[in-house]
Amino acid sequence: MNYNFLTIEGNIGAGKTTLATLLSKYYNSRLVLEEFAENPFLPKFYKNPRQFAFPLELFFMAERYKQMKDLIQQKDLFQSLTISDYLFTKSLLFAKITLPEDEFRLYQRLFDIINQQLVQPDLLIYLHSPISRLQENIKKRNRYYEQNIEDQYLFSIQETYTHYIKQYNIKTLIIDASNADFLGNEKHFKAVVDALEKTYEKGQHYLTLP
């Protein structure tokens, strides 16, 4: 393993937590999972996005910052690799979609101050799935507040991630997760592990699962 800090990202329902958990077990690494269920504004946001977008995104950013700051301070001598199922910049990307311009400018000022203090991942693994597959996964995991997410919202998230990765030329392994089954198909998981044995230059690299 050539990396100390891996981050798994993707749209809602892409399988980030599943893959991060499997990889952490395989590599015996430290695992950092987003505590989205703790956000009291999430159900309210899906019912009334305009009213609750700002407190939702502010709460997420504060919680993610706390987790990442603790990560820096708690160095584990027995676990040199850390795997996270979210990118801190996710806060800014989602806020760009959900907030009106004036609120987003304020949010971005806060984000820029905080982001300077955090460690960035050595490699971003991005799971790309079509909207139809995302909706299938969302229905399957059956979180009540997610059941009415619109295709357009998922499409906006997809576009925002893609633009960010390309604009800043992030070192990214983009996995076509259209038919991914990391839990049930050993070949899919092994393909990811094999890919992580390689060293990548800055930019986008692509993996098609067998």
Rank of each mutant, 00 (worst) to 15 (best):
Y3K: 08
F5R: 12
L6I: 11
I8E: 03
E9L: 09
G10M: 09
N11H: 04
A20E: 00
T21G: 09
L22T: 11
L23V: 11
Y26L: 12
Y26H: 14
Y26F: 10
L33D: 01
E34K: 07
F36N: 13
F36L: 13
A37D: 15
P43Y: 10
K44N: 03
K44M: 02
Y46L: 08
K47E: 14
R50H: 06
F52I: 08
A53Y: 04
A53L: 01
A53K: 04
M61C: 06
E63M: 15
Y65G: 00
Y65R: 10
K66T: 00
K69A: 05
I72R: 02
Q74M: 09
D76I: 12
L77C: 07
L77I: 04
Q79I: 05
S80C: 06
L81T: 03
T82E: 02
L87C: 07
T89G: 02
K96A: 05
T98V: 11
L99E: 07
P100L: 11
D102N: 04
D102Q: 15
Y107P: 10
Q108L: 03
Q108E: 12
R109D: 08
F111T: 13
V119I: 15
L123N: 03
Y126D: 07
L127Y: 06
S129E: 05
S132R: 15
R133E: 12
Q135I: 13
E136I: 13
N137W: 00
K139L: 07
K140S: 10
K140W: 00
R143N: 04
E146L: 06
N148Y: 14
E150D: 07
Q152T: 04
S156W: 00
I157K: 08
T162S: 05
K166I: 03
Q167R: 13
L173H: 05
I174K: 15
A177W: 02
S178V: 02
F182M: 06
F182D: 01
K190C: 09
E197P: 05
E197C: 13
Q204A: 09
Y206N: 10
T208H: 11
T208D: 09
L209R: 09
L209M: 11
P210H: 07
